[in-house]
């Protein structure tokens, strides 16, 4: 079992940039373009790793620490998230709190590195990021609490192996609400379109992108890689809820889960293609809505 878990962790490390490529390719195809190859994110990472980094004289060690700590925290989080029905590499009761705050740590260091540059522009992005994050966190925690209540455990791995097709049959509405809430969390945490536009370079619209403007070379590669891993992490949570398929054969479970991840990436691409970014004042409403969905799911299972 430990071997499978290790294999799944490896799979996450290798395939995470692929998801970004699939999303970009989907958006290009819907827009009528050929688009970049699916392996483009790998090439970007490789290119950035070859380059040297440029540091502004106004920055301190905080700026250099940001990307490294971010990547490290995400790597630990990867080890905590189960995939394809198999338990994660690390699992202990209460690891859901660690998981949520590892994501919080990544955000904290991205924000503090952005503030360290002293650019008012990056400070604005940092302020927005933190505001939205504060609204996403209740949704994530209420969702995880719902799962904990459903399965009676406090470990993410045990929770996700406790979700079965039979459970969907009994508590279908609750799981559907949970999946919807997690989809919004997934889109918001990964700075995708209804909340933030990952491709924009207009100062009024940027949230996540603006904070990493000053990073270059390997630092920027770390940031891109850790955001790809974050996409994989939250996607794995969502897929774990939507496809609770337990065929008994580990390799088949893994294949289904990977197919689900690619499907999720295509769905994200489609959402980005047919939706406009919400106005900044409307975003909190969406995020509060996600919390309400998760709270409703919790109420349904508490009943």
């Amino acid at each position: 079992m430990a071997l499978v878990s290790a294999l799944h962790t490896l799979l996450a490390l290798v395939l995470a940039p692929l998801l970004v490529g699939v999303i970009n390719r989907t958006k290009a195809i819907v827009a009528g373009r050929v688009g970049q190859p699916v392996r483009q994110p790998y090439a970007d990472l490789w290119k950035l790793l070859q380059k040297g980094a440029v540091y502004s004289r106004t920055t301190t060690w905080v700026f250099r620490t940001g990307p490294v700590v971010g990547l490290a925290a995400v790597l630990v989080a990867v080890a905590l998230v189960p995939f394809g029905g198999a338990p994660a590499l690390l699992a202990f009761p209460g690891d859901l709190v660690l998981f949520a705050y590892l994501l919080g740590l990544v955000r904290f260091f991205t924000v503090i590195a952005a503030l360290d540059t002293g650019s008012s522009f990056e400070g604005m992005g940092a302020s927005r990021e933190v505001t939205f994050a504060a609204l996403v966190e209740p949704a994530l925690f209420l969702g995880l609490a719902t799962l904990a209540r459903c399965t009676g455990t406090l470990s993410i791995s045990a929770m996700f192996s406790g979700i079965t097709l039979r459970g969907w049959g009994q508590g279908g509405p609750a799981f559907a609400l949970l999946a919807a809430a997690f989809l919004i969390v997934f889109l918001a945490e990964n700075a995708r379109i209804p909340v933030d536009d990952p491709t924009t370079h207009l100062e009024l619209t940027m949230i996540h992108e603006v904070m990493v403007l000053d990073h270059s070379g390997p630092d920027f590669a770390f940031i891109l890689y850790s955001s790809a891993l974050k996409l994989w992490l939250l996607g794995a949570l969502l897929i774990g809820i939507i496809f609770p398929l337990r065929s008994g054969q580990l390799w088949l479970n893994s294949i289904v889960a990977v197919a689900g991840m690619v499907g999720l990436a295509i769905l994200t691409g489609l959402i980005e293609s047919c939706m406009a970014r919400l106005r900044l004042v409307r975003v909190p409403q969406l995020l509060v809505g996600a919390s309400v969905l998760a709270a409703l799911a919790l109420v349904l299972v508490l009943r």
């Binding site: 909190p284 409403q285 509060v288 809505g289 309400v292 709270a295 409703l296 109420v299 009943r303």
Partner: peptide
């Protein structure tokens, strides 16, 4: 609107 949604959540709890 945001406050309405929050009040709605409270109302849901109250009715439960």
């Amino acid at each position: 609107y945001n406050l309405s949604i929050l009040v709605g959540t409270v109302a849901l709890g109250v009715s439960l």
